[in-house]
């Protein structure tokens, strides 16, 4: 078993369920957040954090996994789900002034939140995020958060390990090492902790909350913080603090089914007829 303990923060987002019909609000073109769930891709981040701390003896050994979210009142559901899956405690940054935040404003608030939760006597070692939120899908947050915190960014990790090299003076240097699968090459990237790591769905198979987990979650604490609590000026977040804006949005008609045929021995030829008619050959 690994001996060094880890203090990990996992970022989780509450997003509209992609299985349902997702909409933009007619007033301000922001995403309508009813029927929201924990972003599916953040489950991989939670699992990655739990795996790392379990290898190190879990809570008993002094490790911790804290799930953080920023969002309206209902977003606490994402944190609760993370607690059911196994995160130790939760933090919800909730403030009316956050409404309409773009990536720049979100990363500013999340950076302040992480600093707030990282006192000198117990600093955060790793910040693990999903590869993208399933609503915004920008993947901007991990990079912007790393830039704002001036921490190394290890993004799109398909594997993650924390290694330690013992120095003679004792107290080794701990590194996060990831593998990432690019289009033209695979890369191994490493950085000394603390670091921001975003993980893909290649990294693990997330566990489901079981009955024990669901019961245990009821006893875990969720702390709600406001912008004032973490020392962020409301003018720097929300629509006011954002650096991008949506001018207009247009709903696209849903795709409809075309011609469907059952193969009667010549469907391959009919398929080619269709391509020819569409001038696609």
């Amino acid at each position: 078993m690994e001996t060094s303990t880890l203090n990990i923060v996992v970022l989780v987002k509450h997003v509209p369920d992609a299985q349902l019909n997702r909409q933009l609000s007619a007033n301000d073109n922001t995403v309508v957040r009813t029927d929201s769930i924990l972003s599916e891709l953040d489950e991989y981040a939670i699992e990655a954090a739990l795996t790392l701390v379990e290898e190190r003896g879990g809570a008993a050994a002094g490790n911790s996994v804290t799930a953080l979210t920023m969002g309206p009142a209902g977003a606490v559901a994402a944190v609760r789900k993370a607690l059911q899956i196994g995160a130790f405690e939760g933090v919800h940054l909730c403030d009316d002034a956050l409404a309409g935040s773009d990536a720049a404003a979100t990363s500013l608030a999340l950076a302040a939140l992480v600093r707030h939760l990282s006192p000198a006597e117990r600093p955060v070692d790793l910040i693990i995020t999903g590869m993208a939120s399933t609503d915004g899908e920008t993947s901007l947050i991990p990079a912007q958060l790393a830039a704002r915190l001036e921490l190394p960014q290890l993004t799109f990790a398909a594997s993650l390990e924390v290694t330690s090299e013992d120095s003679e003076a004792g107290g080794g240097t701990r590194k996060a090492v990831i593998r990432r699968d690019g289009d033209t090459e695979a890369e191994v990237i490493e950085a000394v902790l603390p670091a921001v790591v975003s993980v893909t769905d290649q990294i693990n198979s997330p566990r489901y909350p079981n009955f024990k987990g669901i019961m245990a979650a009821k006893k875990k604490t969720v702390t709600t913080l406001s912008l004032a609590d973490i020392g962020v000026d409301p003018a720097h977040v929300g629509s006011a603090g954002s650096w991008t804006a949506i001018d207009s949005a247009q709903a696209q008609p849903a795709r409809t089914a075309g011609t469907i045929i059952a193969d009667e021995g010549n469907a391959g030829v009919l398929l080619v007829d269709f391509l020819a008619a569409q001038k696609l050959l």
Binding site: T256, A257, T259, I260, A262, D263, L270, V272, F274
Partner: peptide
């Protein structure tokens, strides 16, 4: 539900037939 042209059939017969037909044309 989103296909412009759909074939209910076995890909191991439909695809090779389409490939052969494209080459023939």
């Amino acid at each position: 539900e989103i296909a412009d042209f759909g074939v209910i059939g076995d890909l191991f017969t439909v695809l090779p037939q389409a490939t052969a037909e494209i080459k023939r044309r």
